[in-house]
Each structure stands twice: as structure tokens, then as C-alpha cells.
């Protein structure tokens, strides 16, 4: 499969009065056509900022400092604002975390769907309406004809997220960036929405960048996983490989903190400590203060991302070895 998106050495910094936050620091990854890439990590790990950087929607005081974002052979960082507006929604679209707030409350669903089609597709009014109805049907909304006239507040959270997904799919994009698409939803709705997304991206041949803090979600959905910690990718590889042969202690911590219903345990596993202050990152490895295997070198030298298996990268001085256990 061809590489659809290739991010090289991306640095997105936030310059504030308190200092500079390196929200995304030298991150490189790629997404192939039709692939689902999971990006996991705790809050503040730079997952969302990575997603927004790709589509170049970083608000002040954030700024993309350097790097390349090559999408379909062209560097998005070299494009002008008006050129980017032809990429946003058309080539790359987004699904946000909270469907309660990502739809504009004063416009009907139909108007908000129509807006994308009007911007990116050469269709007449009648064709656009038909396309909207078809899209709503695809995302599982009944009575699409009458629902088009409804406002967002007349939909439930799960239904709204379906509408958001329909909008994201409207112009047949090649990549959808979904930023915590199920976090704000009821648990029962979460799996429905995830199944729907997986089905739709497969049907439409769209690549998906799924940003979530929930490794369990990613392990069911994604082809490959990037684990991010403090603005850096600490481990990446095929989903199976990450789940079964994880090598970074942080990945292990994330996996262990998934509650397992089959095991009768009185306590949930957690990763000790908290995410460090982004204004004042530790010297050496960012994870060292929380790491059980921390050695002297971890406090001095930052580990490099190195290939440890086929397409399996890790940045750790002492990667865990399943065999050794």
C-alpha cells in the first residue's frame, strides 16, 4: 500500500508567558492508504495537537516550528491558507471529541452537511440534498429526509456523533482524523460508534487516524499503533505486536491499566506518578520519574527511537523483552 501521509520531524510548540511547551516534539510517522492508525497516550501527551497539526489548525499561541507533513506527495506546511481550505474537509476531515459542541447550535443538520458539499463538490442543490440523505442513511440515522431540517439540540449525543461522521465523510476524504471520537459518549454508544466508523472507513477506503487515550479501543480498531508520551512517540508498531510484544514500560503501564473483567482483582493497576509538567520536562527520558526500570543513564540521556523488530520502534534504553520474562 502507498503512503498517504508522511509526517517527518514535526515540532509544534506553544509559546506562553510561562515558557515554551513542546506539545509535539520531533514526531515522525506515516499512514498508508485505507489504514487505521491508533494514537494513544494520556491526556497532555500531544496526541490531539499532532492531529490538529496535520490539518494545520493550531491556535495561538501554538505554532508548527518545523518538520514536513507530506500528504499525497505534497508538503501541507508549504501550502497557503486558501490552499489548505481545499484540503480540509475535502482530502482530510476531522471528527471531534464532543458532538454536543462540535455542531453549530443555530444551523440545521442539513445546512451544516450542505456546507461541506457546497465547498468541495460540484453538485446542484438537488444532488446535494440527495447526497446528505444518503450519508445520513449510511451512518444509521432513520428518517433522514425529515431529520435534515432538525437542529443539533434535537439529537442525542450518539446521533450527533453520527451526523459529525457523516459530515466528515461527505466530500469523500482520503483521511479522517478522529480526536477521541467516543470519549464524550455513553459506554453503550461508544462501541456502536466505533463499529460504525470501522465499517465506514473500510467501505469508503478511507484512512483513519484514531486518537484516543483508550488502548482497549485502539487494539480492536487499529492496524498500527503509535504510543505517545509528553509530545514524543515512545513506541510504534503493528497492533498485535504492540499488544503482545510491547517493549516500552509506558505501553506496559497503559495495557495493565485496562480493567479485565475475567480477572478478579480488588485493585486497578495504574501507572505510578503523574504526567510531568510540560513546562519543566525531566532531563533524559521523559518517563524516567515514573519508570520502574529507571537507571542512571535514563536520567541523563534521552533514548532514541530505534527499530526493535519488523516495523516495531521503541525509544527506551532498556526495552522490555517478553522472552526474558
Amino acid at each position: 500500500m502507498n503512503k498517504l501521509l508522511e509526517v517527518k520531524g514535526l515540532k509544534t510548540y506553544f509559546h506562553t508567558f510561562k515558557g515554551t511547551v513542546k506539545a509535539v516534539d520531533n514526531v515522525s510517522f506515516d499512514i498508508h492508504e485505507g489504514e487505521i492508525l491508533g494514537v494513544v497516550g494520556e491526556s497532555g501527551g500531544g496526541k490531539s495537537v499532532t492531529g490538529f497539526s496535520v490539518i494545520r489548525l493550531i491556535d495561538e499561541p501554538g505554532q508548527i516550528e518545523s518538520g514536513e507533513i507530506i500528504f499525497n506527495g505534497t508538503n501541507l506546511l508549504k501550502k497557503s491558507e486558501s490552499e489548505m481550505n481545499k484540503v480540509r474537509g475535502k482530502e482530510i476531515s476531522m471528527v471531534f471529541q464532543d458532538p454536543m459542541t462540535s455542531l453549530n447550535p443555530v444551523y440545521t443538520i442539513g445546512e451544516q452537511m450542505d456546507e461541506v458539499l457546497l465547498l468541495h463538490e460540484k453538485l446542484n442543490k438537488h444532488e446535494r440534498r440527495n447526497r446528505c440523505i444518503e450519508l445520513l442513511k449510511d451512518v444509521g440515522i432513520s428518517n433522514p429526509e425529515s431529520r435534515l431540517k432538525n437542529y443539533p439540540h434535537q439529537f442525542s449525543g450518539g446521533m450527533r456523533q453520527r451526523v459529525v461522521i457523516a459530515i466528515a465523510l461527505a466530500a469523500n476524504p482520503k483521511l479522517i482524523i478522529a480526536d477521541e471520537p467516543t470519549t464524550a459518549l455513553d459506554v453503550t454508544i461508544q462501541s456502536q460508534i466505533l463499529k460504525l466508523m470501522k465499517k465506514l472507513v473500510e467501505e469508503h477506503g478511507v484512512a483513519l487516524m484514531l486518537i484516543t487515550h483508550d488502548l482497549a479501543v485502539v487494539s480492536e480498531m487499529a492496524d498500527r499503533i503509535n504510543v505517545m508520551y509528553c509530545g514524543k512517540i515512545v513506541e510504534s508498531g503493528y497492533t498485535r505486536e504492540i499488544i503482545e510484544n510491547y517493549t516500552h514500560p509506558y505501553t506496559e503501564g497503559l495495557l495493565n491499566s485496562i480493567p479485565d473483567i475475567d480477572k478478579d482483582k480488588s485493585k486497578l493497576n495504574t501507572i505510578p506518578g503523574i504526567v510531568p509538567n510540560m513546562f519543566d520536562l525531566p532531563k533524559g527520558c521523559n518517563f524516567s520519574p515514573r519508570c520502574k526500570n529507571c537507571q542512571d543513564i535514563c536520567l541523563e540521556k534521552e533514548p532514541k527511537l530505534t527499530e526493535i523488530g519488523e516495523n516495531h520502534y521503541v525509544s527506551c534504553h532498556f526495552p522490555l523483552r517478553k522472552e526474558a520474562n
Binding site: R88, G89, S93, M94, T101, S102, N104, V106, H120
Partner: peptide, 24 residues
């Protein structure tokens, strides 16, 4: 969020300002 979502849809900034944010 809906302002950012509109931007992610490819709506030009001016239209987001006057069409989406102003009406609210």
C-alpha cells in the same frame, strides 16, 4: 468547538467568523 469544526470542514476563516460565530 463548532468554530474549529467548521474550519476543519474547510470553511474559510472569514465565513466562519461571520457565518458561524457571529450568529451565535
Amino acid at each position: 468547538d463548532y468554530v474549529k469544526f467548521a474550519r476543519a470542514k474547510g470553511v474559510p476563516r472569514k465565513k466562519v467568523l461571520f457565518g458561524h460565530a457571529l450568529k451565535n
